[in-house]
Amino acid sequence: MLTIIKEKDTDLLLQRAARHLCQKLRDALAVHATVNIAVPGGRSVVKVFDTMRTESLDWNRVHFFIIDERLVPIDHPDSNFKLLRDHLITPLAREGGISPENAHPFILDTTVPDRGTLAYEDVLARLGFRYDIILLSSGEDGHVGALFPDHHSVTDPHHGFIVMDDSPKPPPERMSSSLSLMLTAQTGVLLITGEAKREAFRKFGDASMPVSACPARLLTCLKDAVVFTDHAQE
């Protein structure tokens, strides 16, 4: 079931998204020993993390993965993992709320052709090779993670993590969860915020638009999905 939540105040919207995510984590923890959540980077996501860390739940049973990543070291300023660590994991760990080992980074390995994706798949495999919950943030063109419209990334049949050297959005070198891996999630949360994303929201709402042309629409394939947007329906 897909729900769209609209709120003109973007900061309030992102706080609502964060609290919704935490409630979904609590619901999942009620039936699973551990829960896997995959998250992206970005300014909007930072605000979500900042609210999530104020929520009370059994964080030590939650495992974090990175939906997509630039091919950079984890301490690089452009690293999505660094955002997760700095804005959520480290503050929680400081209070004993979570073990830092529960946040699983993608480790770039330039010595192997897969750049480290197979090693990252091994980590996920130890936890069931699935996502329970995914947090996504749409780009201006409707991309999510590093799955881009009308690009081989969104049609790649590999089940796991993929790498590319030709991302339409700079930098060209990126890693992403594959479409089929994202679709393992029972629950999805999608952020579509900012004036520049108006066209992306329009495409998302077009039922005739295939996922290959608007990857954000993969959310419509999930059992439980919520879009948080500051756009009015057109």
Rank of each mutant, 00 (worst) to 15 (best):
Met164Ser: 14
Arg202Ser: 10
Asp156Pro: 03
Gly116Leu: 09
His151Leu: 02
Asp150Tyr: 15
Phe106Lys: 11
Thr184Ser: 14
Ser180Trp: 05
Phe201Ala: 08
Tyr120Lys: 03
Pro100His: 01
Tyr131Arg: 10
Ala146Gln: 04
Val154Lys: 00
Leu179Glu: 04
Thr184Val: 05
Tyr131Phe: 14
Arg174Phe: 02
Thr111Phe: 04
Ser178Lys: 04
His152Tyr: 13
Phe161Arg: 06
Val163Pro: 10
Leu127Lys: 12
Asn102Trp: 11
Val154Ala: 12
Thr111Tyr: 03
Lys203Tyr: 13
Leu147Gly: 08
Val154Gln: 00
Ser167Trp: 07
Pro105Ser: 05
Asn102Ile: 08
Gly194Ser: 13
Gly96Lys: 07
Gly128Ala: 08
Pro157Asp: 06
Gly96Pro: 06
Ala200Pro: 09
Val189Cys: 06
Phe106Ile: 15
Tyr120Trp: 06
Ser177Phe: 00
Glu95Asp: 12
Phe161Gln: 05
Ser178Asn: 01
Tyr131Gly: 02
Ser178Cys: 11
Ser138Leu: 07
His143Tyr: 04
Asp132Gly: 02
Asp166Cys: 09
Asp165Trp: 15
Leu108Phe: 15
Pro149Tyr: 09
Lys197Ile: 07
Pro105Val: 06
His151Met: 02
Asp150Cys: 15
Asp165Cys: 13
Asp114Ile: 12
Leu118Asp: 10
Gly142Asp: 05
Glu195His: 10
Gly128Ile: 12
Ala119Asp: 03
Lys197Met: 03
Ser137His: 06
Pro157Ala: 03
Gly139Leu: 03
Phe106Gly: 08
His152Arg: 10
Val189Pro: 07
Asp122Ser: 14
Leu191Gly: 01
Asp150Val: 15
Ser167Lys: 07
Thr155Asp: 03
Leu127Phe: 15
Ala185Met: 03
Asp166Phe: 11
Arg130Asp: 04
Ala196Ile: 14
Ser153Phe: 00
Pro157Cys: 05
Phe106Ser: 09
Thr110Phe: 15
Ile134Ala: 05
Ser177Thr: 14
Arg202Gln: 11
Ser178Ile: 05
Pro171Met: 01
Leu191Lys: 02
Arg202Phe: 13
Arg115Met: 15
Tyr120Ser: 11
Pro157Glu: 00
Thr111Trp: 08
Ile162Thr: 15
Asp156Trp: 03
Gly145Ala: 13
Thr187Ala: 04
Asp132Lys: 01
Leu108His: 13
His159Pro: 03
Val123Tyr: 01
Thr117Pro: 02
Glu101Gln: 11
Thr155Ala: 12
Arg174Ile: 11
Asp166Val: 10
Val112Asp: 02
Glu121Asn: 15
Asp141Ser: 02
Asp141Glu: 04
Val112Arg: 07
Leu181Ser: 05
His143Arg: 04
Ile107Asn: 08
Lys169Met: 09
Arg126Gln: 13
Thr193Lys: 02
Ala185Phe: 09
Met175Glu: 06
Leu124Tyr: 00
Asp165Arg: 11
